[in-house]
Design a protein around this nucleic acid. Structure first.
Lengths: 198, 198
DNA sequence: TTGATTACACTCACTAGTCGGTATACATAG
DNA sequence: CTATGTATACCGACTAGTGAGTGTAATCAA
């Protein structure tokens, strides 16, 4: 097997990740995760004390790759801040075209667990979105944009709006529209910002 | 009882609405809905052939009130198009402060049913969001704004982004930020629009 | 010997959906 | 004005299966 050399715990988290993201958290049983991981349920419960803990591990595993991808998409964008910001949305649209795309794991989990505000998964999700926002804020700040913090929030709102809307309509064109909005907002801040033209 | 005079079917849908919205669709059993409605499960299955049909009825019931509220909030807003658009977000922020607020029923349902793209509830949700978008597009069009259709999409993206983000952070301030973004976008379109100043 | 794993039987609560039957109302036929 | 038919609305009890999580004894590798 290709992943036989991975630690058992990681194999379990990978299996959980595939299933939770693909089917939804409540739709997937612990038995199904154990089977997909090629492990008995007893072993799963050796590594995780509950399904809730497994859910938390699933989200934690996605934090860093998600952030890294954001940074890469931004860095690879051609042009100024506004163009680079728009590039993030365009890359997102491209990735949303894959049939296996099912929106944002954090947002979907928070929608499923909306009745448990104190759930560990909610805290992880909130912290992750804050990381996104903070990263944009720092980036905009470094570029000398006016109202960097507010602007970061608005970009994140457009990002998460894209996730939600495209999940419903299955039409990544909404991400392009969000990208144009982000472009316009960042461009406007650039005009008002420190020592910029017009 | 206060709602004893309501038809049984309506009482069931009301109970389903409370529970599905409050707890999530998969988290709520048909038994729980029947009990809350003060009806046996057999009676529930007399009126609805499946849980899926009940879910669809739950969403359909929310369509018209949701749209009416949007129109009212917009109409009650003071000032021009941009101000009125921003007023929608401000009203949304106010309503999101209620503890029972759990985001957008349509978005949360679509997140739970992301693995069933053909589910009736998904179609209802998509159609409802389209109605929102179309209403904004027609309104912006009537005001002679440039790119009314694109602008409507962007406002809807900000709206749905607000739902998603505030559900996670429990901080309605994000809706104010989204409102400012919408205000800026609409104002810019106004500047570029038919015969507007500057 | 100790930490990791398996096999598997088990609990107990819950789940969507069904079977057969009942109460009422309002017909129409004798 | 009965008697029978028919349709709507409703219910208690049930099935067959799934849910998370546990108990226990045995195995395997370092």
């Amino acid at each position: 097997m290709t992943s036989e050399e991975l630690p058992t715990r990681d194999r379990i988290v990978n299996a959980a990740s595939d299933l939770f993201y693909g089917e939804g958290i409540r739709a997937v049983s612990v038995d199904a995760v154990a089977e997909k991981a090629g492990v008995t349920k007893r072993t799963l419960y050796y590594h995780f004390t509950s399904k809730d803990e497994l859910i938390a591990a699933y989200l934690r595993q996605r934090e860093q790759p998600n952030l890294a991808r954001l940074r890469r998409w931004y860095a690879e964008g051609e042009g100024g801040v506004a163009d680079k910001t728009r590039a993030v949305f365009r890359n997102l649209a491209r990735s949303a075209r894959r049939p296996s795309w099912k929106g944002c794991a954090f947002l979907r989990t928070s929608a499923e667990l909306a009745n448990m505000p104190g759930h560990p998964a909610m805290k992880i999700g909130a912290a992750h979105k804050k990381d996104f926002e903070n990263w944009f804020a720092a980036t905009f700040e470094a570029e000398g944009l006016a109202d960097a913090a507010l602007l970061a929030r608005q970009v994140v709102l457009l990002l998460d709006g894209s996730f939600a809307v495209v999940l419903l309509h299955r039409d990544p064109a909404y991400m392009e529209a969000a990208g144009e909005a982000a472009f316009a907002l960042v461009s406007a801040a650039r005009r008002d910002g420190v020592g910029q033209a017009i």
